[in-house]
């Protein structure tokens, strides 16, 4: 039995210890907000926070998460009460097709939470492991900066 915290709640997992974290989240904990884009750690769509660090959940075995805390996109705001970061994405065009968005949000969330700078260069560096094919990134960068500055234009 593997014990972990998911979005602030104590959870247990008693399936295969080498099950990928993404599969455990999606199949066992029914948290389908975390998306699979490539299954090999290149696209970042499956990014979740593991003890506040962004990781590719497709490259982590559930047994590596014993005693640790996982945060997924579901830990941020709800549709009727978006977090400041999510509201920034809505206002600035940071999401289009939406499939990279949960991973992008978690990476940006980690960046801001850890005191990362909210300027173009720092945000671009922070999200460089998350691929987006729709936006060309500029509006994502703007979204993160707007959220950090507390603006909701």
């Amino acid at each position: 039995m593997i014990m972990l915290t998911v979005n602030g709640r104590k959870r247990s997992f008693d399936g295969a210890p080498f099950k990928r974290l993404i599969d455990a989240l999606r199949e066992d904990f029914k948290l389908t907000g975390t998306k699979e884009g490539c299954g090999e750690g290149e696209c970042g769509a499956c990014t979740v926070l593991l003890d506040d660090e962004p990781v590719n959940s497709c490259l982590i075995a559930i047994c590596q998460v014993e005693g640790r805390a996982v945060e997924t996109v579901e830990s941020l705001g709800a549709p009727e009460k978006l977090s400041r970061l999510q509201a920034g994405f809505l206002a600035c065009g940071g999401a289009q097709c939406g499939i990279c968005t949960p991973g992008m949000l978690m990476t940006a969330h980690a960046h801001l939470k850890s005191g990362g700078k909210a300027d173009d260069r720092s945000v671009r560096a922070a999200i460089s492991g998350n691929l987006c094919r729709c936006t060309g990134y500029q509006d994502i960068v703007k979204s993160v900066i707007a959220a950090a500055k507390g603006r909701r234009k």
Binding site: K35, E80, F89
Partner: peptide
């Protein structure tokens, strides 16, 4: 106008 599908996509609620 804010994107209609935005809130669901931004919260992981949009079902692919």
């Amino acid at each position: 106008e804010p994107r209609r599908d935005g809130p669901a996509k931004l919260t992981g609620r949009a079902l692919y």
